[in-house]
Structure formats: C-alpha cells, structure tokens
Computed example of a mutant assay.
Amino acid sequence: MGAFLDKPKTEKHSAHGEGNDLRYGLSSMQGWRVEMEDAHTAVVGLPHGLTDWSFFAVYDGHAGSRVANYCSGHLLEHILSGGGGADFGSGSAAAVEGVKDGIRSGFLKIDEYMRSFSDLRQGLDRSGSTAVGVLLSPTHLYFINCGDSRAVLCRGGRVGFSTQDHKPCNPREKERIQNAGGSVMIQRVNGSLAVSRALGDYDYKCVDGKGPTEQLVSPEPEVCVMERAAEGDEFVVLACDGIWDVMTNEELCEFVRSRLQVCEDLEKVCNAVVDTCLHKGSRDNMSVVLVSLPGAPKVTEEALKKEEDLDKYLESRVEELLGRFGDEGVPDLVSVLRSIATETVPNLPPGGGLASKRSVIEAMYNRLNPHREEEGSAGDLEDPW
C-alpha cells in the first residue's frame, strides 16, 4: 500500500512539445512516496508512415517502477506492430476496428513479453503498472485504459468523455476475479491489489486453464473511440490516481481551462495541476499529460486582469495578517493560510480553489516577512485547511 516520506519531494520533471496541430505539456512529482513509480510517453508523429498521428500515455507503477518504465519506452511499438502499421488506415469503420484490435493486441503482447524478463519471471520484481493513453489520428481519438489512471476529454467547455477506472469492486471485474478463484476484500484483489487490470503483476496471472484476459488481473485495455470535433475539442488530460484522488473530472477540466486563459506555457499549466493536487492533500506520485487541441481556450485580457486582481488581494491579506502581530509574535505560515481559508476570496481558479494559490501565498509571506525563522515550505506542512 506504499510507504511515505517525512516530507514530500517536490522537484518536478516537466516537458513540452508540439506538432500535428496540437501542443502538449507534462509534469510529474514524486511527492510523499518513497519512490517515483510513474512514467509517461509523448510522441508526436508515429513510425510506419503515421506521421500525422500522435500518442500520449501515463503509467502508474506499483510495487516498483520496472514495468511502468519499460512500458513508457516500448508499449507504442507493440501497439503498432499489433496492428500491422498499415492496417491503421484512413478512418473508415474497418480501419477504426483495426486500430482497436491493434491496441488490444499490443497490450497483450507487451504483457507476455515482459513476463520473460528474468527478474519478473523469478519473482525478484513484482511490479505492475496501470496505463492510460490517447492515440490521435487526424479523424479520431482512441482512448485507452488499463487500470485506475484516467483520461478526460474537455469538449465544448465541459467533460465530454472520461475513461472508467478498473476497480475490483466493479461488477464485471469482480466476476472475472471470482471466476479465476480469487476474492475481493477491502476493495482489493485478494485483499492486496487495488486495481483489477494492469500490466505486469504476474503473481495475479498464474491461474491454470485461464487465458490472459481471464486472470485475477487482466492486461486487456478498454478502448473507446470518438470522432474528433475540430471546433469543440479543447484538450485531453491524462493523469494517474495521485491527481484524481483529490480532483474530480469536472474540477480538473475547469482548473485547466482557467489556467489556459492566463498562461500559454503548457508545462506551467501542468506544474500548477501537480502543485495544486499536492496542496489538496494527495499523498501519491503525481503525473499529468495535457494535450491541447486547436479548440483549446486562449489567453484573454479579462482572465489576466482577474488573476492580477486575485494576486493583489492575496498580497494585501498576507500583509494585513502579518501587520496584526503583537505579544504573540509574527503568525507562522500555516496560521496565515488557515486565516485566509476562512474567508470568501474572490476570483479563485475554479476547480483549484485556494490550494492552487498556496505557493503564491507562501512566496508573498516569505517576501513580506524576511526575518522569519526557517519553518519549511508550504509543501512540507500538514494540510492547514
């Protein structure tokens, strides 16, 4: 179930890119976990002549990072070989089904291939990984999910689609687990694993007489296809459960939309998502990939003005709170945060709330109180609200 550090590791790995009429950004943070087990893939322009296709994915490893890291570098090639490359075609109904078959085949192939690795075969490494991704063709979006990471499409200003988490308590998943001789206890497979589909996890894939998709844990992805809407499609978010533990689909879509109206840098937007989730109380590794489509919101003067007014308001409140000290001395950062949290603050980013401004408040506090005693950053502190 994972062990935790005394304080979070807040350094981020972030990147960005563009091509095929889209832009992307990504960010990941180890957070409170003792190990970083997440990985990701971001490829614009695919081999086998699929130069106008792109692929993005997030992998949430557990019991180690071996499987997640291998999948980040090799799942795409298994998917493309699973579909024969040329079968990915033009967007006709037959071609779409060919792509879906190639994706499923690729997952089963990489899962069987990794089983041959000596450390996994001998039980020296018992890691597994979820996988959530989106394969973009010029005409379609292929959403791919295996586990409890999640993909969300923002279309027309609201959640247009989201993948469904594969949890052991889901009736369909529970039936498969029980048919394979297992049980669901404390919402986990055999009381241990919190996801019912994953790559790796070979301890749960050794039931004699059962095929790979009939085991306690299945490597089969769910693949959902949507035709692209040139004007309505705004962005796709892929994220591990360290993000979804503290934000709903609607909250994350609203928050990302609000950030895109004040910032063109997708890395910074993704960093803001990760920071906000840390401040909302996430204790897990956190990874997010944001794929911005042609219909995404643009920076507006109105949104920039509201953001500027919000920052000025917060600065005035921090300054006022610091100016109130008497015999008790200067209030510490947590006291300042708690005080502001009791107020109605205008123009907070939807979905992110005051947590999305915690780093800003901390920076203001440090600047306005230069003689403070060192007390750790806001990211190191217990949740003040």
Rank of each mutant, 00 (worst) to 15 (best):
F55G: 09
V195R: 01
G352V: 11
D38Q: 08
S72V: 13
P349N: 09
G242P: 08
C224Y: 06
G232A: 14
M1A: 14
G91Q: 05
R121Y: 11
A15Y: 02
S292K: 15
C71P: 06
K210L: 08
Y365I: 05
N69A: 14
E250N: 09
I144L: 04
D148N: 11
L216T: 00
R283A: 08
M247R: 01
D245H: 10
V269A: 10
G295L: 11
K298Q: 15
S149I: 06
W32N: 06
W244L: 04
A57S: 15
D87V: 08
Y204H: 12
A194C: 13
G376E: 06
P138E: 03
L80A: 03
A68G: 08
L75N: 01
L322D: 09
F143R: 03
G329K: 11
S258I: 02
W32T: 06
V246K: 09
G182S: 08
P171H: 04
N285Y: 06
L322F: 09
G211A: 13
L321Q: 11
L141F: 14
D332G: 14
T342N: 08
V237T: 15
E37T: 09
D119T: 11
C253V: 15
E37F: 10
D275C: 02
L368D: 10
C206D: 15
L304H: 00
D203F: 01
T139F: 04
L193Y: 01
V256Y: 05
T344W: 09
E362M: 06
V336N: 00
L348Q: 07
N347S: 13
D21C: 09
P346Y: 12
S282P: 02
G85K: 11
E97V: 04
R176V: 02
I243M: 11
P171A: 10
C270D: 07
I79V: 15
S27G: 13
M226P: 00
D383Q: 10
A341H: 14
L238P: 08
Q187P: 00
L216E: 00
E362R: 07
R317L: 14
S183D: 07
E11I: 13
A230P: 14
S92G: 15
L76Q: 07
D265E: 09
D265Y: 05
C253G: 07
G329R: 11
D332T: 01
L193D: 00
V34D: 01
V237D: 09
A151Q: 07
E112W: 05
G323T: 04
G45P: 11
V99Q: 00
P171R: 06
N347T: 02
G73M: 10
I144G: 05
D125P: 13
A63D: 11
K305P: 00
D241A: 03
D380Q: 08
Q215Y: 03
A378S: 15
M185Y: 03
L278C: 02
K312Q: 14
R158F: 05
E222T: 07
C169K: 07
M286T: 04
N285C: 06
S72M: 10
D125L: 12
K12Y: 04
E362D: 05
V288F: 08
H371W: 11
R358Y: 05
T139W: 03
S149F: 05
G191L: 01
L76D: 12
